[in-house]
Amino acid sequence: MPRWHHAVVFTLAGVLALAACGTPDAEREVVADPSAGTGSQVINTSPDQQRIRADKVDEIAAKVPEPIRADGKLAVGVSGEGAPPLAFRADDDRTLIGVEPDIAQLVADVLGLELELNPTSWENLFLVIRSGQNEVGFSNITVTEERKDIYDFASYRVDSLGWEVKKDGKIEKIEKPADIAGLTVSVGSGTNQEQVLLNWNKQNKAAGLAEAKIVYCQRPTEYQLALRSGRIDAYFGPNPALVYHATVSGETKIVGVVPGGGEVPAQIAAMTQKGNNLVPALSEALNVVIKNGKYQEVLNRWGLGDEAIPTSEVNPPGLPRS
């Protein structure tokens, strides 16, 4: 079966911007703005990922809870619904690739564990972590104070959200609540961005403006079809995934990027079962690869270099309770 790919150009200066052309090349190329200091690189979308790897650190590996060390594997829950460049299927339509599996691989390496990637839906991700079926989730999970009641976190990336609209549409920017007044917009149910959107609607109502009509789409293909057909005016979701889709499809554009909490900065983190004592080792492993540069290499590989954090924290301040 033939494999079709696209040359993808990202400009990473402050926020991810768009420029692209489609070609049947063997790989997706990501060229960063030289001012961002990341140079240029090629993204491999084949099953043979040749992932960036890290060395085991015995001192940190010894801190992994004994049952996990005895098993020798790190069971990681990731999104199975396909959200490049976060986590998606390679050209064989089976192998999970993306920035989330790559970071999980680095952590597993430092801990001396074999990485076991387990795809799941967003709805089930929290259940499999809470039950202990998977030890950790790497799936663009935002730290919130409510989630910290049930889970532990080790931060590893800045959380940013984006607004995607039709490329030939009339909407040019969405930066504040008033910009979505009266629009029909879509968001994933149970996500952090849903909470931001609901808060924006409250602000519009208080200001005497029309609230946005919300249409819930759980899978990327659902919102993409709704956007293409005009059933929705805009989609609100994780900025990296939206930029990737807008660039590859050539049919949409990003008209606004906001912090993960709307007005409040947020962090993406690895999530574990509360009190299972794994998260300190995860955070220390992340700090090892942050310090030795492997972490930055992974982010740059997927065009997300500007979402790097200087230090991983255990249970950092999360978004406030709703």
Rank of each mutant, 00 (worst) to 15 (best):
D48R: 15
A178Y: 11
G208V: 11
P119T: 11
V15Y: 08
P177C: 12
V78T: 13
G169N: 03
Q49G: 11
L198N: 14
S312N: 07
S121M: 13
S229E: 14
Y156R: 00
F126I: 14
A270R: 01
K253P: 05
S229H: 07
V107Q: 10
D109M: 09
A210N: 12
D71I: 10
E251H: 14
N44Y: 04
L197A: 09
Y244G: 02
T191D: 10
H245G: 07
A226S: 08
P177N: 09
L183C: 09
N204Q: 12
L282W: 05
I68D: 08
L18Q: 13
Y223C: 02
W4P: 05
N300T: 10
W122K: 13
K56H: 07
V64Y: 07
D91I: 04
A270K: 02
G14W: 03
I214K: 00
E175C: 06
G182F: 10
E114T: 15
P101Y: 04
G82F: 10
R51S: 14
E29V: 14
A87N: 12
G112V: 12
G22D: 10
R228L: 15
I103A: 05
G169F: 01
D233Y: 00
D25C: 08
A20Y: 10
G250T: 07
E194D: 12
T272W: 01
P265F: 11
C217P: 03
I43H: 05
G82C: 07
V288F: 09
Q195V: 14
E222N: 05
K213C: 08
Q41F: 06
L225R: 11
T311V: 15
E100D: 13
V64P: 06
V64K: 06
T184Y: 00
P317M: 08
Y156V: 01
Y151P: 00
P265R: 04
V128P: 03
R301C: 01
A32Y: 15
F138S: 06
A212V: 00
Y151R: 02
F126T: 14
A62M: 03
A234K: 00
N277K: 07
G262L: 08
G112A: 09
N287D: 13
G98E: 05
L161C: 04
A108G: 08
I171T: 06
L278V: 03
Q133L: 13
P65G: 04
L198G: 05
E211Y: 03
I129S: 07
